[in-house]
């Protein structure tokens, strides 16, 4: 029985990979789009031939995805690891009774709710503070930070929890304070686990579509301004997949973007494997 489910899982995974890859590679094989076109910043799928179109450059979206994912990791990484340290090292009782359930509830909230909160609270707040439209990179980063926080907290807490008690005792017995023990030893020992937590957070942020799409504005612009609208791979795919004709170049280019997403995620997962392997040495 378990063998069957294992095979079902493996077959599903590989057919998925094959399906996305075959569709994603199609536009390049037929010569409709060159790789250089695809990795350029010129996006104009509905431009007519006279206007130089259609153009299928996805660079803005690839960078957009990277920027929101990294940006949210920059905020959530320190916050999440700090919260994990608090709930394991400093106040284990409060951690178990209050933080742990809070984290679990955060995980269970559907992403559309996060997006809705971003849309009704964060975007207007940014608009009134900075005077821009409010939709954009910063709003996306803030919403995603909250969404990946529970992932980072729970994996970090596990990593910190698995640091042997004897190491802490050895440190205290040498006259270390709690802070010296945490900063000099516990964090160092737990480091591979903490890195894994942050990378998984990035992977999650990278793949998140709905909530991000609701708050980033969805324009084809380079994501280098915190307050300007932009797009990510996921938001472009979700917005356009239903509106394009199956088998058309436009539709296939969206598959290419999905392939890029998949490859990025695979790379992140491999990075986690690598980190975990180094830990065993």
């Amino acid at each position: 029985m378990t063998l069957v489910s294992a095979w079902v899982l493996i077959i599903t995974l590989f057919s998925l990979l094959y399906f996305i890859a075959s569709k994603g590679i199609a536009p390049f094989l037929h010569g409709e789009v060159t790789l250089a076109d695809f990795f350029s910043g010129n996006w104009g799928p509905s431009l007519s031939a006279e206007q130089g179109g259609p153009q299928y450059g996805a660079l803005d979206f690839i960078l957009g995805s990277l920027m929101v994912a990294l940006g949210s990791a920059v905020i959530s990484g320190p916050l999440g690891i700090g919260a994990a340290l608090f709930m394991t090292e400093i106040a284990p009782k409060a951690g178990r009774k209050i933080l742990q359930p809070a984290v679990e509830i955060l995980v269970g909230i559907p992403s559309v709710v996060y997006g809705f909160i971003g849309l009704t609270l964060i975007v207007p707040a940014l608009r009134s503070i900075f005077g821009e439209v409010g939709f954009g990179l910063l709003a996306g980063i803030i919403v995603l930070s909250v969404m990946i926080l529970p992932t980072i907290i729970s994996i970090s807490a596990d990593a910190i929890h698995s640091v042997p008690q004897g190491i802490r005792e050895g440190s205290y017995a040498l006259g270390a304070t709690r802070w010296q023990t945490i900063s000099g030893l516990v964090i160092r020992v737990a480091q591979p686990g903490l890195l894994t937590a942050v990378v998984l957070g990035i992977a999650r942020a990278f793949g998140e579509a709905l909530a991000v799409q609701m708050v980033i504005g969805n324009t084809a612009d380079l994501p280098f301004h915190l307050l300007k609208p932009m797009s990510t791979l996921t938001s472009v795919i979700t917005l356009n997949m239903g509106n394009t004709v199956q088998g058309s170049t436009y539709n296939n280019v969206l598959w290419s973007m999905a392939l890029i997403l998949l490859l990025m995620t695979l790379i992140l997962i491999l990075a986690i494997r690598f980190i975990a392997r180094r830990r065993e040495v």
Binding site: G166, S171, L174, L185, R188
Partner: peptide, 12 residues
């Protein structure tokens, strides 16, 4: 100072 039953060197 104290030496424990299990050595537990720091992973350094």
């Amino acid at each position: 100072g104290m030496v424990f039953q299990q050595p537990h060197p720091f992973p350094l």
